[in-house]
Design a binder for these strands. Structure first.
Length: 740
RNA sequence: GGGCGGUUAGCUCAGCUGGUUAGAGCAUCUGCCUUACACGCAGAGGGUCACUAGUUCGAAUCUAGUACCGCCCACCA
């Protein structure tokens, strides 16, 4: 907590360090002042109300001429605090007046006519009055041109001695009288209705007044240098990297930091004032020796407190006891990753980097991960004030903490903001349930056998076992890559797909024995358990509670198992398990199974009814693959009898499908609907013909053949051959049907 | 006004260095209470990749501009 004693001392020390170095100074700044509450307000404490106001056009006489410059203002009483008239240097209408002297109406004070690019020639008359003490923007102009900052207000909103005859009047009464006087002197050119937005005090509704006050500042340009260099050189990296642009743009244009706040809660500014105004900078009340010639008891500490970020920017080291050299500081500074939101890149991140270099001599971290900000379904950032948020506790209550976590991870585009609604969380809820169910299945099918999760018996593997191990290996590699690149959502999606598709939909279904309740082959069960263990560990960062629970159940009877999943090692990719050609073989089996399912579904074959499967293969390797493993996919494809080989003939009255490298026939006699089957084949035929046409055009283009790389051309040629082959087969099958 | 993102199926998003029949989940439609899961299984439909111009043999992917959405910062005499 930054208001704890140790951290408070660090804050004061830092103030003194910067003050002694000449980097902290006292200056003027425009604040929002409430004349009723007699306090300054932060921008956040203002309420902005749209009102119908007026735009008054006031004439200023040019000294020594019979000419007038007319300016438009919404606050005529500030005329009394004007210290210049300004025009745009490029404005041809008013160029000739630059450098001349104008006379303030009523008070007849002399003020210069200056040129400043800020003035918009399109607004009003293109001439602006400059009131440095009562407008933030005019203040900036005043600084640029070294204008006097003339304060005309008292703290209660009445006018002070600089207001001449209007002294003592309330600002609005003064406005009224001034306008009347101008009218009388014909110096009020005209009045227009004007729509404006007025800042008011959130407590008392009083219109706030921009007010010049004494504030403390930190000079930033020197502090910024090493912090800019750190990001430019890559010593500090943002993830995603484009956030470094935001950081650098701000740092390159950095302005001095106003660190004093007129609040009651915060670190008090460590400055003490003697009755005569003499200043002492000190953590505690100065001792007699520290303020020679003054009575320490008579010193008064500055009433203001420090900006909250003035303590937060020290956080990476103040939390470890700095400025003392503690073992914690030694061990934990610098750290590696800072995780935060983009909206505080300036407020916090940039300042921590600057403080790190200034006080520790090194950057506080090497990587800054910027996470997304939740938005609602319309894309608007969720916030308390808009009331468009979803309460995370409500989601946790309903679906569980893991669901909240994995759902947000899955839904958040890497580096961007997720738009979420209530059903965003169903995805995660379903997934966590799926994980739990499949785990339950594996554990049930242990049938009393002790699970083995650390090793696999490589002499006892079937093709599907080796396949899932290869897929697992690839998955671990992909997840590691994604995490290394700080792509959390990508990592979670890789795992989601692996678990749901590869593991649940294919592997577990393939190793299920054909007979209900039959014991699963020991080798496959070993692999299933082994893979499940790795899944739990890979998913643990995303689904912490459920993976822990399952892990403890799975390893309950396992001698020497860690007492928590977090003590287990992160899975390593074992490249000897990777087998791309095997994955390609499996893909073919999957395609056959999918084609069969598709035929059956489209022809409305009752799920309970099994059917024979005839496969004419182009290559006997596939035939063998199918024959040898039919027992595994028999139930997936509802196969009664399998006939496959290069010479297989199409059985009469059978439905067909053509995939790359094979033709599939299912004899369906009574079940087949001629029209439906014709439609199916025709549709596929049309699809392939379109593709072939496009491809043929491409391959007939001499420019393509001349410029495209060889491997692309041969790939396209192979594709063409495949299309032609499939079209021919489809044609034959279609002709046969037409002959029925 | 400045800076930075985004725009791909009805919705939420993948698509990394240009060559895939542009993918997934939700939603929709069809059929299923099939040995863990109906929070499920299988199948299907659905996209001129915001628009315009350019670079290229080839653009969802690169460049420029336009429009719209959003975030941060500044400002509105």
């Amino acid at each position: 907590f930054t208001l704890d004693e140790g951290l408070s001392r660090a804050v004061a020390q830092v103030f003194i360090h910067l003050y002694d170095k000449g980097l902290i100074y006292r200056g003027h700044r425009i604040v929002n002042w409430c004349p009723s509450c007699k306090t300054s307000l932060s921008d956040d404490e203002l309420e902005w109300n749209e009102t119908e106001g007026s735009l008054w056009y006031i004439k200023y006489k040019i000294k020594g001429e019979d000419e007038y410059l007319t300016v438009a203002t919404t606050r005529p009483e500030t005329v009394l605090g004007d210290t210049a008239i300004a025009v745009n240097p490029k404005d041809p209408r008013h160029k000739k007046w630059i450098g001349r002297t104008a006379l303030l109406p009523i008070l007849e004070r002399e003020i210069p006519v200056i040129a400043d690019p800020h003035i918009d020639p399109e607004f009003g008359t293109g001439i602006m009055k400059v009131t440095p003490a009562h407008d933030a923007n005019d203040f900036e102009i005043g600084r640029r041109h070294d204008l006097p900052e003339l304060n005309i207000l008292n703290i209660d909103g009445t006018l002070n001695e600089h207001a001449g005859k209007y002294k003592g009047l309330d600002r609005f009464e003064a406005r009224k009288q001034l306008l009347e006087d101008l009218q009388k002197k014909s110096q009020l050119d005209k009045t227009e209705k004007y729509h404006l937005v007025l800042g008011t005090c959130y407590r008392c509704d009083t219109i706030i007044e921009p007010y010049l006050s004494d504030q403390w500042f930190v000079k930033m340009s020197e502090l910024a240098k090493p912090a800019i260099e750190a990001v430019n050189s890559g010593k500090i990296q943002f993830h995603p990297s484009y956030w470094s642009k935001t950081y650098l743009h701000w740092m390159d244009n950095i302005r001095d930091w106003c660190i004093s706040r007129q609040l009651w809660w915060g670190h008090r500014i460590p400055v003490w004032y003697a009755p005569d105004g003499k200043m002492f900078v000190s953590v505690d009340r100065p001792t007699a020796a520290e303020c020679p010639g003054y009575d320490p008891a008579a010193l008064v500490q500055d009433e203001d407190v420090l900006d909250t970020w003035f303590s937060s920017w020290l956080w990476p080291f103040s939390t470890f006891g700095w400025p003392d050299k503690t073992p914690e500081l030694d061990k934990f500074y610098p750290t590696k990753v800072l995780v935060t939101a983009s909206e505080i890149i300036f407020l916090w991140v940039a300042r921590m980097v600057m403080a790190g270099y200034e006080f520790m001599g090194a950057a506080p971290f090497s990587d800054v991960y910027i996470h997304g900000t939740v938005r609602d379904e319309r894309g608007i950032k969720m916030s308390k004030s808009l009331g468009n948020g979803i309460d995370p506790l409500e989601i946790t209550e309903k679906f569980g903490a893991d669901t909240l976590r994995i759902s947000l991870t899955l839904a958040t585009p890497d580096g961007q903001d997720p738009c979420i609604g209530r059903n965003t969380f169903e995805v995660g809820r379903n997934f966590v349930n799926k994980l739990y169910q499949v785990s339950r299945f594996v554990m049930m099918r242990l049938d009393g056998r002790t699970p083995v999760v650390d090793t696999i018996d490589r002499t006892d593997l079937v093709i599907f076992d080796r396949w899932i191990l290869s897929r697992l290996t690839q998955t671990i590699t992909d997840v590691d890559t994604a995490l290394t690149e700080y792509r959390l959502s990508a990592a979670s999606k890789i795992l989601y797909n692996f678990v749901w598709e590869d593991f649940c939909s294919w592997y577990v279904e393939l190793i299920k024995p054909d007979q209900p309740g039959a014991v699963i082959r020991a080798g496959s069960l070993n692999v299933a358990t082994y893979v499940l263990d790795k899944i739990l560990k890979l998913l643990h960062p995303f689904v912490p509670f459920v993976t822990e629970e399952i892990y403890l159940q799975l390893t309950a009877d396992m001698p020497g198992a860690p007492e928590t999943i977090t003590f287990g090692p992160w899975p390593k990719a074992d490249s000897s398990l990777l087998n791309p050609s095997l994955e390609a073989d499996l893909k073919q089996i999957q395609e056959v199974v999918t084609a069969v399912r598709s035929i059956r579904s489209e022809l409305n074959v009752p799920p309970g009814k099994k059917s024979d499967l005839h496969v004419r293969v182009k290559d006997e390797i596939l035939g063998e693959l199918l024959r040898n493993h039919v027992e595994y996919f028999r139930s997936l494809a509802r196969v009664e009898k399998l006939v496959c080989g290069a010479e297989v003939k199409k059985p009469p009255m059978s439905a067909s499908a053509v995939i790359s490298g094979a033709e599939i026939f299912i004899p369906l006699a009574s079940l087949i609907d001629l029209e439906v089957e014709k439609g199916r084949l025709q549709k596929e035929l049309n699809n392939l013909r379109d593709l072939l046409e496009k491809l043929s055009r491409k391959l007939a283009n001499p420019d393509f053949l001349a410029h495209a790389p060889e491997d692309i051309i041969s790939k396209e040629r192979a594709k063409k051959e495949d299309y032609e082959e499939r079209i021919e087969k489809l044609n034959r099958n279609l002709e046969q049907i037409l002959g029925w």
